[in-house]
Design a protein around this nucleic acid. Structure first.
Lengths: 339, 339
DNA sequence: GACTGGCACTCGCTACAGTCGAGTGCCAGG
DNA sequence: CCTGGCACTCGACTGTAGCGAGTGCCAGTC
């Protein structure tokens, strides 16, 4: 059955009212607050249809209606327009992000900003190593048999690992190894490095062979294989807004999920610059079936190097949240492009 | 008024029962579960005294007694003995901490371990830069006018900052600068560096002067002045155990406090290897007046390079928690000593 | 055919009264 | 100083009743 325009209007009104009041909305209140031009009885009939189609439901008889996940989905897809940011918000974003001194700082400021603006839980992924390329590899002798390798990526990320050498290296040997490694890997995408690292070993001089092997093992293992992804989190206190009415009673499953980096990455790790909205049950993670997630990719220019997003109750202000998430992602992208 | 031994026994019994049952404990239940050798009536008299002295209180008439913060304090100071760890716990600690590949890894594993063992919120401070000394300073040219300075500390911490150079430097100049900087600062405690950095500028050759100034500014600002302390957090989901009975209803203030690094550092940033217990109101931070914190310093050998601890309801198993926190701190210290 | 006003019905919420029982404080006696 | 006994308090729980928001349905109107 197709829903005519008025029924969609009714759905939109229900979503908007419920989001702002947090209470089931009835037919009478609806016609009072919105110019629907019809009587409560008519609205009731429309509501009955909407309920039958699964867009709204009654918590119990003699209560108003509440949108279902499906209702929110329809609302997000077809009934809402992106809300432009207020000048105050724009200013907040700019003020927050200028003056960041390094990548850590950028990410921390961003995640706090996002949590503050949306009043929800914010998650920001550090630029993915898999989407970074090598800017420089530095080898720092810690002792004669220990080398610290520091990789600086074009995205600003810096990773370091300790390499245990099978035999001591002298200063000039380290210098040679450093030069060779950089010649081979600089400017190269991390995901493309494995064959190059391999050839590095093969082409190495006999006296450097053992050290090169040790180095290449560490490089491959830590930087490529177990992709070192990192995320930052903020705003968990916002989960307690709405006094436990959201999230069906218990915060526990939500907090548990938020502790798992793997889960966070699944939520906001994006490949495309598209904004995704996952509503309640659409979510793959069981613990988050009562939450919605708005996420998007970010990066300098059109490329995407990481994801960011927010998590909140299904009953959230989708248009506002989507607008904020996008805006923050855009600003962060610009910031990264400057470096 | 001095409390005789039996009154102390009664207090101990009340604390133990309340901690395990989470319910106000009455005189009858007390004599049943503990061998006090006296009748409920006698216990009641003792309770009346304990209440008068402020060690216990009644949530309401006709309810049992509950320890006050002061009661817990007395319990911790004089009535409890440190509970030895179970073999299972010992094994868990060892299993958890072997195989850590770098400092980040150590800290993350530690904080999760601590949260899991105590079933509370765990906080671990990274080794403080203020208590670290410089192992190596590396200068990595990013472009002709940009230098990345990477500082490797003896505690395993690695910090990097970007330095904008006023004028381009060539390769050999960078090498010279690197050598000079390392000669001056290597092995030196970070807190002692300011005068040395200053002299570095003064002694620098004219053509390196400008670059040295830029470098020293960054060094002083980021590594010394705004002490770059970091902390890791885990186990927030444990706050929801005991179904909001703990923490006087709302998790909000707790979660808010846990989001502030500054606050976390205040809580667990320790100078001495002593184990501190802050109970409820003893806490300086208003948001945490309904929580208790057990914290201790850790470090290789007897020196302390950072703090770690847990936060839970005032109604917590102090002997067990204290034992676990200490044990974990000791293991982490050993781990750090190996590097 | 679509909309409207009216009406009976449902059911959660609140208030209130009554009961129960855990736990106490006090006191007289050993 | 300890104990048993007793009266008392007060929160927790139960059952009942009234209220009111909100619904579904139906007959009537445009």
């Amino acid at each position: 059955m197709a829903l005519d325009d008025r029924k969609l209007d009714v759905l939109r009104a229900i979503v908007e009212d419920y989001v702002s009041t947090q209470e089931p909305v009835g037919s009478k209140a609806l016609v009072e607050r919105h110019q629907l031009g019809v009587s409560p009885a008519t609205v009731r009939n429309d509501m009955a249809v909407l309920e039958e189609e699964g867009y709204i439901r009654q918590p119990h008889t003699s209560a108003g209606r509440v949108p279902t996940d499906r209702g929110y989905r329809l609302f997000v897809d077809r009934l809402s327009t992106v809300k432009p940011l207020s000048p105050a918000e724009r200013r907040a974003i700019e003020r927050f992000l200028v003056g960041a001194v390094d990548l850590d700082d950028v990410v921390h400021r961003t995640v706090r900003l996002l949590a503050q603006l949306t009043r929800q839980v914010a998650v920001v992924q550090y630029p993915s190593l898999a989407r970074s390329s090598v800017r420089h590899l530095e080898l720092v002798p810690i002792s004669t048999t220990r080398l610290m390798v520091v990789m600086i990526a074009n995205t600003g990320r810096v990773e370091q690992r300790l390499v245990e050498l099978p035999a001591p290296l002298d200063e000039s040997q380290v210098t040679t190894l450093r030069r060779l490694t950089n010649e081979k890997l600089c400017g190269c995408k991390l995901s493309d490095t494995p064959p190059l690292v391999q050839s590095l070993v093969e082409e190495s001089a006999p006296e450097l062979r053992a050290a090169t092997v040790a180095l290449s093992t560490v490089l491959l293992e830590t930087l490529v294989e177990r992709h070192e992804e990192r995320v930052a989190l903020a705003g968990t206190a916002n989960l307690t807004r709405g006094g436990l009415l959201d999230f069906s009673g218990s915060l526990r499953p939500i907090l548990e999920a938020l502790e798992e980096e793997v889960i966070l990455l699944k939520l906001i790790g994006e490949v495309e610059p598209i904004t995704r909205v996952r509503i309640g049950d659409e979510n793959e993670i069981d613990n988050l079936r009562s939450a919605s997630i708005v996420s998007t990719g970010y990066g300098p220019g059109v490329t995407v190097v990481g994801g960011l997003g927010v998590l909140g109750p299904t009953r959230m202000d989708y248009p506002g949240t989507i607008a904020t998430v996008r805006a923050v992602a855009r600003y962060v992208g610009e910031l990264l492009a400057q470096n």
